[in-house]
Design a protein around this nucleic acid. Sequence first.
DNA 1: CTGAAAGCGCTAACAG
DNA 2: CTGTTAGCGCTTTCAG
Lengths: 345, 345
Amino acid sequence: MGIRELAKHLNISIGTVSRALNGRGDVNPETRRRVLAAAAELGYSPNQSGRSLRQGSTSAIAFMLQTYSGAELYGEPFFIGLFSGVQEVLARHGLDLIVLLNTPDGDHEAQLRRVVERRLADGILIPWTRRIDPRLDYLIQRGFPFAALGRSESGGDHPWLDLDFEQAADVAIDRLAGFGHRRIGLVNNGHDLMHGHILLAGYRRALARHGIGFDESLVRTEEMTEAGGYRLAEGLLRDGPLPTALLVGSERVAVGVYRRLNEAGIRPGRDIAIIGGMIDSPASRFLSPALTCFRLSLHDLGVRLAEALLATMPDHAEAYGGGTVQALWPLELVPRESDLMRLGG
Amino acid sequence: MGIRELAKHLNISIGTVSRALNGRGDVNPETRRRVLAAAAELGYSPNQSGRSLRQGSTSAIAFMLQTYSGAELYGEPFFIGLFSGVQEVLARHGLDLIVLLNTPDGDHEAQLRRVVERRLADGILIPWTRRIDPRLDYLIQRGFPFAALGRSESGGDHPWLDLDFEQAADVAIDRLAGFGHRRIGLVNNGHDLMHGHILLAGYRRALARHGIGFDESLVRTEEMTEAGGYRLAEGLLRDGPLPTALLVGSERVAVGVYRRLNEAGIRPGRDIAIIGGMIDSPASRFLSPALTCFRLSLHDLGVRLAEALLATMPDHAEAYGGGTVQALWPLELVPRESDLMRLGG
DNA sequence: CTGAAAGCGCTAACAG
DNA sequence: CTGTTAGCGCTTTCAG
């Protein structure tokens, strides 16, 4: 079933069929009706390869999802929420979202080159940038449209959105310091991910603001998983006096921390204050004690991210004119139980 | 940068370039070397649209991921594991995996038709079948290659893989009955998902084997989320004497159940036995008490699912000959703490 | 072993 | 408003 066949069935030319299907103005309404009816009846839609080849664009946007364990910083719930916003915007432009998972061999760069060189999509969204991220330089060099989720020292002047980790660190440390804490630990991700660096910088700055000295032994790098949280707590218990408060990267880490502390008879919110997680993932509320964390609108972030990308694509920019998007996304503290303890004094 | 340009740069014909790039035998080794070198140097890969159009196939397999809340039966960790296996197999055939998320409007069938009619992929993987699932009938009618994860009453004779929920129900009920339980509750998903029906049937049959009467009030339908688990526990507490044991669909549900029971001073593994979750998701081990659940190899399941699909595709079948795959996947019980209680008597 | 040429399905430019 | 036609980039057939 190609356009040729459909045209023959209707006794008109393929040109007219194409114009009718694509909503061009110069088609007799009755003709258009017949074409649409026949297409629906016969289950015809234009072949995407033919279309892409002719138009020089694929009508698809790729999202490079990395699944190596340490990248589960916010866990997958993060992406599900994000995608709904991204798709909402893409749908306005008739664009498909295709999610590409990193291959088992894990060569992100090769995979990215493949997308660009084979032209698998018209634009690409790059989450979890690294501090040094050759992907961004490559995309700029190729002139391929993209938007990054996360800042980076690479890539020069390019569109990005990022969570405001500095602000989150400020708010968290203010709150904990206000409760009387001065030994506040931080769990950070590894992998040279940019937000790890930023969170650490924010943490240091906020401590300094409160006149609290930086203690290297209170900062740990771990996988952002339950197992990582467990190992972290294990290490803290082993290494000496526990910090009185802890800032952790995700509710997944918190689950592991809770577990290990629980085994040691230590209860968050009573014996140690914990703030964790940037996206208020569904579990946070239902842990015992409920986890104080941060919240943001993933849907809205997805909308904005998609718009930032489209703004760089000539065919779609008109609706989103006005320069390269580079913006921080606010995080709102959700106070719950896990940090509800005031230090004596 | 097209093949034409590359050919001109090398002073040979595009036909030879194509043959060299595609590993055809009838190319002078020295010519091939030069072509490959130039392609690498200039960052050339064949345009996928042109290739697809010519070959009549896209070199892509689609995976229709549904994200409506109730479908988070096993949560997203399920898919991440599955995908690694799927991709391993696809990579052997030079096929890309593209994940399509359901659109916000949620019309799964329209989205499926789009994939088939526009030829966005050569084959498709359909997870979480419904008992009545028009998608399968449609795919069969169009002759489009697919494999389903989950059984269905629709779709006639088609390739599928499914978790062995009957066996899991058997093992769980045997274990709980062996501990002396006779009031065993079940939390099931809604949405007419096939495994809900199967799990319920297995549960009933296993109870009967132990001479335990079926009590409708012990079976609840809930979203497979933390909030669903919380509501469930809430309902059970409200409605009268708690069951002494509970079989829940996922560790996410368990988190909510734990929370509500904890608020009521009821401790799993001491006051009520809980078995939950089919895939031993990372959190299970780290909840307190650790959740007794089931385990399977997601990677291997993904491998087998991809193979089941390829076996139906003429271009790839040779390696996986031998009929339509229809198989149950075993689930292994992982005993932990949440059900470790023996009922007096 | 290589070059020339056809044609995959479609859209857009152009002529009527 | 409609028909005709070129050509997007590629692979493959065929002739040499």
